[in-house]
């Protein structure tokens, strides 16, 4: 697929979401260009996860529109979005713990391979499922664990497996919700290296608390506070933005990065 950096693959227009009296998403507009890694940052409660949930279809917005690759997906069910090529990884790992690592990814591949009313052929020997599953594990750096039970993996490896499952459907865009959460320094570094490799191949929307990782990876950064966009731009622009410094980034932290 050719990557023209100028085409927005994801367009969010005037998105609004309330929970009772709380405004979680407030007139939010956002463009993500094809091929870029776009990071969303903001303090706790800024509505980052709510935004991801609306993009992936888990929540319906009260108003506003979401376009993916030109299609209006605002009212589309989650699995239909993922079949269009918009994949999501979960903040809280949610795997098939009693199945093998390869089975986990193969199930994700199978989800994109039409209905599963095939009753006779051994699915564990089907190349159509196993080859893409192995490829996704390879990309997520987990191929060495293919035959392990998922329950036996470390926390960092669980996140890699999440990533592999998101990659299994050959998505055009990934929604990543805090992939570094709970990782040790070494595991974080490995995840950053992996995302850097992935961003050459697909568009990524990354919600992350780890500022070092965000500034190292992002082409563009959008800053949310109380569900509103207060700034959007390149890492350098965000670093220099006085409003961002004031509202969100500690002076020390900005100096550090």
């Amino acid at each position: 697929m050719s990557k023209r950096k100028t085409d927005p693959i994801l367009q969010v227009e005037n998105l609004q979401k309330r929970f009772g009296g709380i405004i979680a998403t407030d007139d939010l507009s956002l463009n993500v260009a094809a091929g870029e890694l776009h990071a969303i940052i903001g303090p706790n409660g800024a509505g980052k996860t709510t935004l991801i949930a609306q993009l992936s279809g888990q929540f319906k917005p009260d108003s506003g529109r979401i376009y993916f690759a030109g299609d209006d997906i605002t009212a589309l069910a989650p699995y239909k979005r993922s079949s269009l090529g918009l994949a999501r990884s979960f903040q809280i790992t949610s795997l098939f713990l009693d199945l093998s690592v390869l089975d986990n990814v193969a199930l994700a591949v199978q989800a994109h391979a039409g209905h599963s009313f095939h009753f006779w052929k051994n699915a564990r020997k089907e190349d159509a499922l196993r080859i893409p599953a192995r490829a996704a594990l390879e990309r997520a750096g987990l191929i060495g664990r293919a035959d392990w039970p998922a329950a036996a993996l470390s926390h960092g490896e669980h996140r890699q497996l999440e990533l592999a499952m998101a990659l299994a459907g050959e998505p055009r865009m990934l929604l990543l919700d805090e992939p570094m959460a709970g990782l040790g320094p070494e595991e974080s570094a490995r995840m950053v290296a992996m995302l850097r490799a992935l961003k050459a191949e697909l568009t990524i929307l990354l919600v992350e608390h780890d500022m070092e990782a965000v500034f190292a990876l992002a082409d563009r950064i959008t800053v949310l506070v109380y569900g509103r966009v207060i700034a959007s731009g390149t890492p350098n622009e965000i670093r220099a933005n006085a409003q961002v410094r004031e509202a969100y980034l500690g002076e020390a932290e900005v100096a550090h990065v």
């Binding site: 199945l99 089975d103 193969a106 199930l107 599963s116 009313f117 009753f119 051994n122 699915a123 089907e126």
Partner: peptide, 9 residues
């Protein structure tokens, strides 16, 4: 062991 069975598991 089929695709159907993988879904059940």
């Amino acid at each position: 062991n089929s695709r159907f069975g993988m879904v059940l598991q």
